[in-house]
């Protein structure tokens, strides 16, 4: 419960960055932090006390294993987050080339 709540607080810090900051790079950093907190939350949901990593060995049976399913899904989501962040950074670099600033309030002109 306490750990879950700390994860949500980390999410809120990222949300504060997304909503409050005007620099595009700060907004992207906030999005990445939100992504981290959610992946950590899912992995914490599958943790078992005194559990072992979900890898079976040949000559002994491991009874107490943590839940491998959230780990498998988060493995997908981490790679997707990298692709999303790279796309956002590409758009930010393009905006900097065009307007000469990262400030989102200065980006007003509409032209192709």
């Amino acid at each position: 419960m306490g750990l879950y709540f700390l994860c949500i607080i980390l999410f809120c810090v990222g949300l504060y960055g997304v909503l409050r900051k005007r620099n595009i790079v700060k907004i992207i950093i906030g999005l990445v932090i939100m992504n981290y907190s959610i992946s950590l939350f899912f992995v914490l949901l599958g943790y078992k006390f005194h559990g072992r990593a979900p890898i079976e060995s040949q000559n002994q049976t491991i009874a107490n294993m943590v839940d491998p399913l959230p780990q498998a899904l988060v493995l997908t989501s981490i790679v997707i987050s990298l692709a999303v962040m790279a796309l956002l950074i590409a758009i930010a670099i393009r905006i900097y080339e065009r307007y000469g600033t990262f400030d989102i309030t200065k980006i007003k002109r509409l032209r192709g």
Binding site: L44, Y47, A53, I55, V66, Q71, V74, L75, I78, V79
Partner: peptide
Amino acid sequence: IVKAPDLAITQLVVEILC
């Protein structure tokens, strides 16, 4: 610490690329 070594490796690589 939460016994997810595959995720730790992936996160390390992704973090460096980020």
